[in-house]
């Protein structure tokens, strides 16, 4: 974890996570294939997420889910999981671990700072804990996962420098 900024009301850390993007029907076979690996059942509602001590499991759209590790795991373990899940012919698991960058934003003013970069409505009544959203942050396609007291923001790896600079700029201005 790299702390990018820490000041009153806001803390931004860049963290290492691993991610598997899943596509499928979300039926019993799908749930079985994933549950076998992560001991979690897929959330059935769009943009909801469930978690355990190892993974966050979020539903991104009607046929797309994402698994994010809470701690860095062995690359081989992730590759093995992808391979295992892909044994189900009717679904696709893709390793996104290195294709994404991960930023954790916490602090009581996090909404204010993020709203310099995105129009998204962070109010609790609109964006409760254990939900996620795919939206634009600093004009980049990002996913925002609302954890208990912080947000996990992910973006494509190629945008990492740009988003990091924009996050810091928003805090500094």
């Amino acid at each position: 974890m790299t702390t990018l900024t820490y000041k009153d009301g806001i803390e931004i850390n860049q963290v290492t996570r691993q991610q598997i993007t899943l596509r499928g029907k979300g039926d019993g076979a799908f749930a079985f294939a994933v549950n076998k690996e992560v001991s979690l059942l897929p959330p059935s509602d769009n943009l909801r997420m469930v978690d355990n001590d190892r993974f966050i499991f979020a539903k991104q759209s009607f046929d797309q889910w994402v698994l994010i590790s809470k701690n860095k795991k062995d690359d081989q373990e992730i590759l093995r999981m992808v391979s295992e899940i892909n044994k189900n012919e009717a679904m696709l698991a893709s390793n996104y671990s290195e294709g994404q960058s991960y930023f954790e934003i916490s602090g009581e003013d996090k909404d204010h700072y993020l709203n310099k970069l995105t129009h998204f409505d962070f109010r609790d009544k609109k964006f409760p804990a254990s939900t996620m959203v795919q939206t634009l942050v600093a004009r980049i396609d990002c996913c925002i996962y609302k954890l208990e007291d912080k947000y996990l923001i992910t973006c494509g790896k190629s945008y990492e420098d740009y988003l990091r600079d924009r996050l810091l700029d928003a805090v500094n201005l």
């Binding site: 046929d63 696709l92 893709s94 996104y96 294709g99 790896k157």
Partner: peptide, 12 residues
């Protein structure tokens, strides 16, 4: 058709 796609451009 049973088929799914993912972009893996940035994974490699």
């Amino acid at each position: 058709l049973n088929v799914y796609m993912n972009s893996i451009t940035e994974q490699f």
